[in-house]
């Protein structure tokens, strides 16, 4: 029973993903236009970044200017997540190294 359920869910999800990937235009014009490889639909924000990012942040690398300037709050959260995860690894693995006294 459990094996059959797992196989059925895996098959259904894989078939759905593959169907959307092969012909997305069956799901209406909205999704079909979005999922055409090589021709993204809404590019206003990105073309603003490409054309104005070099003047506003004086950086050649537009990805860096987005990561650290336009979307700086994302990067702050990301750095906090990394810091917290490392803190969590230290706390979880601390119970395993009780015999170590180098710090």
């Amino acid at each position: 029973m459990r094996k059959a359920l797992m196989a059925a869910s895996l098959f259904v999800l894989f078939a759905a993903l593959l169907y959307v990937a092969v012909n997305p235009s069956d799901f209406g014009a909205e999704l079909g236009d979005h999922l055409v490889f090589g021709e993204p639909k809404y590019t206003d924000m990105d073309s603003y970044f490409i054309h104005n990012g070099q003047n506003q942040t004086a950086a050649n690398n537009i990805v860096t200017s987005i990561v650290f300037d336009y979307r700086g709050f994302d990067t702050l959260g990301e750095a906090s997540v990394l810091f917290t995860a490392v803190l969590g690894v230290g706390v979880v693995l601390r119970m395993l190294r009780g015999d170590e006294n180098d710090e």
Partner: peptide, 13 residues
């Protein structure tokens, strides 16, 4: 033409 999306489906599966 949609080969990257098919790859995404296969990798996720």
């Amino acid at each position: 033409y949609n080969l990257p999306y098919i790859t995404v489906a296969v990798v996720i599966a």
